[in-house]
């Protein structure tokens, strides 16, 4: 279990350069500067509230400190010095109280109105949202289905969401097990994924880049490692990516990869789907075009052959509690499966 920690420091390396530009390398979850809506509409009121809060605390702290330092009596023996007690001058004191309350009320009214206006603003995207993505939360990964009226254009993927820049995208959110929460701080606020209920959300990425998202509602042992990545790219790239996703996998050519496909069917296909490879499990993430993704295990590991082997060989060591079982493969079997998975890279 201790070993899990070492696998994590990958963010800096795994992020595409565009993301580093867009988000600032060290602040993948920062939301005081945003790159899309509704984040852009929320940030101003957040800053406003923050400054209001800081202002109020500074004023009150100053009043208390000044009151204490200006008025303190030193060397008083409370048991003897009985003359000290005085009446509170309620008349003049209450005038200050009413003044303070009026100021409080005024500030609050401004923020109530601002809140309502912002809410009206972020309720719906401006204009139609042509793309709808269904996201189902699982312990501990994200099932992502791109919906379309044309059934042949529907496909499923996991943990990485591609969206076109400048186009509002709608989300249908639900959960297969417990409550999760969908949150991509640099673009959008959060919405819960609740079993047996369909929530909707939307966002529009305005700057190309890769954005980190993370589950924001405690959902079990590996809640901390339930991340997702949003890749915002030009509409052309996005369309090409969608078309590529629709392709069935190509049959492997090398002997070892062919053997790997057989072994995959025997050992993995009960849970994992790979379109075109006679593997249709539904428990775990869809692995068609796996190599096109940049991370493994919901954003935990960079997608490299080494990490892939390690993950398949013993998932529970990397992500304690994961529902993916250990399969007790021999070394050559593991190599073969890996060789097969490495062929799933039409996009690259």
């Amino acid at each position: 279990m201790r070993r899990t920690i070492r696998h994590i420091p990958l963010l800096g390396t795994a992020l595409a350069p565009a993301a580093a530009q867009a988000q600032g390398e060290n602040r993948p979850m920062w939301y005081l500067e945003t790159f899309g809506s509704p984040g852009n509409e929320i940030t101003p009121i957040l800053w406003g509230l923050l400054w209001l809060a800081i202002g109020v605390v500074v004023i009150i702290a100053a009043l208390v400190l000044a009151g204490v330092f200006l008025k303190t009596q030193r060397g008083v023996d409370m048991r003897r010095d009985q003359e000290a007690v005085s009446p509170p001058h309620d008349h003049s004191a209450l005038r200050w109280m009413y003044g303070g309350l009026f100021a409080t009320l005024a500030a609050l009214s401004v923020f109530v109105v601002w809140t309502m206006m912002t809410m009206a603003d972020i309720r719906q995207p401006d204009g139609e949202a042509p793309i709808t993505i269904a996201i189902t939360g699982h312990q501990w990964w994200w099932q992502v289905t791109y919906l379309s009226e044309d059934e042949s254009r529907i496909f499923e993927t996991a943990n990485e969401i591609h969206v076109p820049v400048g186009v509002p995208v709608k989300f249908r959110l639900t959960s297969a097990d417990v409550i999760h929460s969908f949150w991509v701080p640099a673009i959008a606020s959060k919405t819960d994924l609740i079993p047996g209920q369909e929530n909707t959300a939307w966002f529009r990425a305005d700057t190309p880049g890769v954005y980190r998202g993370q589950c924001a509602e405690y959902c079990g042992k590996q809640h901390a490692n339930m991340a997702l990545r949003v890749v915002a790219e030009s509409p052309e790239d996005f369309d090409a990516w969608w078309d590529m996703q629709l392709e069935p996998v190509e049959m492997p050519e090398t002997e070892v990869a062919k053997m790997g496909m057989e072994l995959f069917r025997l050992n993995c296909a009960a849970c994992h789907n790979i379109r075109g490879a006679m593997a249709g499990g539904e428990m775990g993430p869809d692995l068609s075009h796996l190599m096109e993704r940049t991370t493994l295990a919901s954003g935990m590991l960079p997608n490299t052959p080494g990490h892939l082997s390690g993950w398949i060989a013993n998932p529970d060591v990397i992500k304690p509690g994961t529902l993916m079982p250990r399969t007790d493969l021999s070394g050559p079997e593991l190599d073969a499966i890996r060789a097969f998975l490495l062929t799933l890279d039409q996009g690259a």
Binding site: G12, P28, M29, L32, A224
Partner: peptide, 17 residues
């Protein structure tokens, strides 16, 4: 919290700051 750290996580990426 303003830097985006979610509650109830036992680990986080080093790059998160």
């Amino acid at each position: 919290g303003l830097m985006g750290m979610p509650r109830r996580v036992y680990t986080y990426p080093e790059g998160a700051g």
